[in-house]
Design a protein around this nucleic acid. Structure first.
Lengths: 338, 338
DNA sequence: ATGAAAGCGCTAACAG
DNA sequence: CTGTTAGCGCTTTCAT
């Protein structure tokens, strides 16, 4: 049953029912009695306004799209959870899309979402987009907020970590412990976040006046295979690093796998700082020193920006940057004397 | 620009544009020339049929709802990812809802989704629903598929693990190694899946003719705190179990935390079998023996059932059960001699 | 305080 | 092969 049938049933106008059910009774000064009658009947017959009809009329779908590279990655699942929770309380639904870290899929997905007339778009991008798509994105029909990383060439609002200083924090921690030779397990060296983190590591080297030659890095994508390959390369280097920083959230998995294969011990043979705190980081042997992102705060900010763009038509595109926190645990010690 | 404006622009009827753009050109035998002209213009002006209008007309939104207890739990995030991927290829979008393991939230969310006139509902339930909601769910306006666990009182299609034999497998593995005293870290003992897993464990005890008194269990919810409390209780028992099975996916986190606090060593002091394979299960020290669910196959089945219900109006509600796989690793050994 | 009616953008039935 | 048109369910302006 829909609201006009309900209206018939009650002998009132559709508009009255509509006003009551969409919470505008007061605004239109519907009588207490009518309100009660309508609500009661609506309850009884399980009547709710069809969002399709309402959406069509209002020109809004009540849905925002959320595009993540990998919902399986705990950073993104935490983000998704927090974003959905907050948006829900504003009556907005979240459409989930997973690009599987693949730029082409991402492009296809963005095209789809753009066509779906969503109310807004939250994008955690992987790659760069085609010029055609980029142009559409630049003149969006809906507010866009990027998280985690910017989409190259797009100046939309962005919520991200201060990656550079996060990288610096990680490296400084190791350098302070006396490590001289460090390895970085990079994610996608083409991504801005990866570059920034690495740049931060280099900053630390400069600050400590250590020869940048002592810093080696490997990596090429966020895939498990690539992480493993990179880890192997790092651990097979002529002069093996005494400390490794995994710059991408998933990198630690590849590293741990490889460390095991090489029969190395953390931290005796190798100190490790891992990007992204995970639920299991404190629980493994040894507990991992990590760089944690303030996921919840970031989610809050994303939603806040989005809602602001939804409600006002100001065209400002803020870049909000959050500080990472180094959580010191036992995967880092001073290097063994030779 | 919408399709009727496009039609004007081209001097053709809206219906023609509609037919071309919704892929029915062939069916209506639109001329090659017109098709080309329309497609080209649509491309040029970025015109896609508004799904709100189309949906309203067709009576379908093109969206299915996915309700999970915790997207942060890797079982559910893998499930969500696989489901979204498959549904996407049928042009269906996925609305994500996270009930945070809370029955009340779940109820509220289900009410919302029911009202949203989604095309279908995929539910991984937490608790039991109010009788009122249950009745709505029983006469659903859309196909419903449950995953992981049934919603008590609802006979909709279900895709789940063969929990009983999974529990049995886990216990048998421990019992075969010579363990006599086992502990179960349960999730929510009110949930059917938890009960089945536990029943499976009891089956194994019976099969091995071991006194059921040697089987103790603790737990009350899926929360981290409860897991820790349960783990503490288990490890503080008068006669400490030599082996523990974590029946819920998150339980292992609480157990590991507690094992660490108690300064116990796995597997020397305690053998462990953990439900749900996680990306890090093989990588920690010691690598965990786990019970793995065939997530991808389960996702495939969910989507298959849903699409079948979407396309035909057969009212069959299959219960599909999948076999768990025990992945043997080093967290289980024979118990120390006393 | 409420009703009547227009129209959001689309598809499908019907017409030719 | 293509056009015309009704109407999906709703909100909102206008009218009273």
């Amino acid at each position: 049953m829909n609201i006009s049938e309900l209206a018939n049933e009650l002998g009132v106008a559709v508009s009255t029912v509509s006003r009551v059910l969409s919470g505008n009774a007061e605004k239109y000064r519907i009588s207490q009695k009518t309100v009660a009658r309508v609500q009661q009947a609506a309850e009884k017959f399980h009547v709710t306004p069809d969002p399709l009809g309402a959406g069509l009329r209002r020109g809004k779908s009540g849905i925002v799209g959320l595009l993540v590279p990998d919902i399986t990655n705990s950073f993104f699942s935490q983000l998704a959870r927090a974003i959905e929770l907050r948006l829900r309380s504003s009556g907005v639904a979240v459409q989930l899309c997973d690009s599987a870290e693949d730029p082409d899929t991402e492009t296809a997905l963005l095209e789809k979402m753009l066509g779906r007339r969503l109310d807004g778009l939250i994008i955690a991008p992987v790659g760069m987009s085609s010029p055609a798509l980029l142009e559409k994105l630049r003149n969006p029909t809906m507010p866009i907020v990027m998280v985690d990383r910017p989409l190259p060439g797009l100046d939309s609002a962005l919520v991200a970590l201060d990656n550079r200083s996060a990288g610096q924090k990680a490296a400084t921690h190791l350098l302070e412990k006396g490590h001289k030779k460090l390895g970085c397990l990079r994610g996608d060296p083409g991504s801005e976040s990866d570059q920034d983190r690495f740049a931060g590591v280099e900053d630390a080297f400069r600050e400590f006046n250590i020869d940048p030659q002592s810093l080696i890095s490997e990596g090429g994508s966020y895939s498990r295979e690539q992480s493993v390959a990179a880890a192997r390369a790092l651990l097979s280097a002529p002069e093996r690093p005494t400390g490794i920083i995994t710059l991408s959230g998933q990198g630690i998995l590849g590293l741990l796998e490889t460390v095991r294969a090489f029969e190395l011990k953390i931290p005796a043979d190798l100190s490790v700082v891992a990007f992204d705190e995970q639920p299991w980081s404190p629980l493994i042997e040894p507990p991992l020193t990590t760089i944690a992102q303030p996921v919840d705060e970031m989610a809050r900010k994303v939603v806040q920006i989005l809602e602001q763009k939804l409600n006002t038509d100001t065209a400002l595109e803020p870049r909000e940057v959050f500080a990472a926190e180094l959580i010191g645990r036992s995967s880092v010690t001073s290097p063994r004397e030779k």
